[in-house]
Write a protein that binds this DNA or RNA. Structure first.
Length: 263
DNA sequence: ATGGTCGGTGTCCGA
């Protein structure tokens, strides 16, 4: 089974790109973030035509929005949403094979890393704590669970182009990486990318639109993650971050991350 | 040191 996550930055604007990705890489399930579309206007048909007939969408007008499109049927959809502010930032589904997926779009958090003066940063910290609590509460249940999405935190030094220069930049500040680590520990989540790539090795999933040449400067961050519950450890076969797709015409600033499981 | 670019409820907001 192959499951991918991608912050697509408008699913309508990038529908041709996502179709190409699905045709070339053939994931069974794709979790999208930043769809930027309300449910009634979600482009269901192109996904349907490509075989992704099972769709769990949770969007809103213009901002945020998550969706799960799948070739495998759902046993259940929901729960939905963690967000204090009522944004569409989470969608849960359980696949027919029993694997539970949680698709997340964690708030970016604005520019100033001070919750006292920046409400968006305060919201981000609150959201990370809520994620921790949600899974800590059900730690005794040992079913196969995957948490995927744009978590908007680059936790390790090797997840950013310059650890020193980003210590006071939202996404890599100590308060965020600490909460991120606590959320990860609360459910004994496995960081699937780092299961396959050693922590010394730099790897990114996002490159800013503002760079004159994203590839030459390579000032990236690893903001997109796949976490697996401990009982899935033996089933993990591979992970891929599709860096090349950052160079496609009309690219998103994020590239997809895909994991392969033997289930 | 600064400002750089995207997409959408477009002449601002959020990223």
């Amino acid at each position: 089974m192959k499951i991918a996550t991608w912050n697509i930055n408008s699913v309508r604007h990038r529908i041709a790109l996502v179709a190409r990705f699905l045709r070339e890489k053939q994931p069974d399930v794709l979790c999208l973030q930043e769809t930027k579309v309300e449910n009634g206007l979600f482009p269901a048909l192109p996904f349907h035509k490509l075989g992704y007939v099972h769709q769990a969408i949770h969007g809103q007008k213009a901002y945020h929005g998550v969706a799960v499109v799948s070739r495998l049927p759902f046993r259940k959809t929901g729960p939905q949403d963690f967000c204090r502010e009522g944004h569409a930032r989470h969608m849960g589904v359980t696949l027919a094979n029993g694997v539970e997926l949680h698709n997340f779009y964690v708030p970016a958090g604005g520019d100033i890393p001070d919750p006292g003066v920046n409400a968006k940063f305060d919201h981000k910290l609150h959201f990370l704590r809520a994620m921790e609590r949600f899974f800590a509460k059900r730690k005794s249940r040992r079913d196969p669970v995957l948490l995927l999405g744009d978590l908007n935190v680059a936790p390790l030094e090797s997840d950013v182009w310059s650890h020193k220069q980003l210590l006071d930049v939202v996404s890599h500040t100590p308060v965020e990486t600490k909460l991120f680590g606590e959320a990860q520990a609360a459910f004994d989540w496995i960081d699937v990318t780092r299961r396959f790539i050693p922590p010394e090795e730099k790897i990114y999933s996002w490159w800013s639109y503002r760079a004159a040449d994203w590839e030459a400067s390579d000032r990236g961050r690893r903001l997109d993650h796949v976490w697996a519950s401990p009982d899935l450890a033996g089933a993990l076969k591979s992970q891929t971050i599709f860096k090349k797709m950052r160079g496609w015409q009309k690219a998103s600033d994020h590239v997809p991350v895909m994991v392969e499981l033997d289930i």
